[in-house]
Amino acid sequence: MAQSLVKEFTKGLWAEIPPFRLVLGLCPTLAVTKTVENGIGMGVATTFVLVFSNILISMLRNIIPSKVRIACYIVIIATFVTIVEFMMQAYTYELFLKLGIFIPLIVVNCIVLGRAEAFAGKNTVIPSAADGLGMGIGFTMSLAALGAVRELIGAGTLTVWGGSPIFEIGHGYIPFQFMVEAPGAFIGLGLMLCLMNLIGQK
C-alpha cells in the first residue's frame, strides 16, 4: 500500500511530470513563467486545487452520474479555484496581481480535469491525494524551472519571493529580453522539452 502510494506520488515528479511528459496545462506554463516567483505561485495554487479536487472527487465518485460527470467535476474544481483566488487576494496580493486572469483559468487547466478524470474518478481518496500532490509538485517544479530559465536569461535575475531578486547576473549583463516576452515563452518551453527528451533518452 505504502509502496503504491509512493509510486502515485513520485510519478508526477518525473515519470509523468506535467507539462513536460504529459503535455498538459500549457497556458499557465507559458503565461506566468516570466519569473520564478510567478511560476512557483501558480504552481502552488494549482497544487492546492489539484489535491483538494482530487480528494473530493474521489470521495464523490460513486455518487456522481457519469453523464454529468464533467459538469460536476468542473463545479468542484471551480469552487476550489475560487477559494484559492480569495486566499491569494487576501494574503499574497502582489502575486495575485501578477498572475491575473490565470488564477480563475486554473479551472480549465487540463491537468486538473485530466487528473480528475484519469485518476480521482477511479481511485480512492488517499491515492488520489497522493496523485494530486505529486502532479502538483511536479507542475510547480516545471513552472519554477521554466521561470528560472526565462528570468535568468531574459532579465538577468532570479526572484523567488517578495519582489527582490535573490540572484543577479553582473551589471554588465544586458538581459536577453526575448525570453520574457511571449514568443520567448514558447521557445523556452519548446527547448526545455527538447532537453527533457534528450535526458529521457539516456
Binding site: 503535455v23 514568443p183 520567448g184 515563452a185 514558447f186 521557445i187 523556452g188 518551453l189 519548446g190 527547448l191 522539452l193 527538447c194 527528451n197
Partner: peptide
C-alpha cells in the same frame, strides 16, 4: 511538441 512550441514562438 517541442518543435511545435518553437514554431509557435516564432
Amino acid at each position: 511538441t517541442s518543435i511545435g512550441l518553437v514554431t509557435a514562438g516564432l
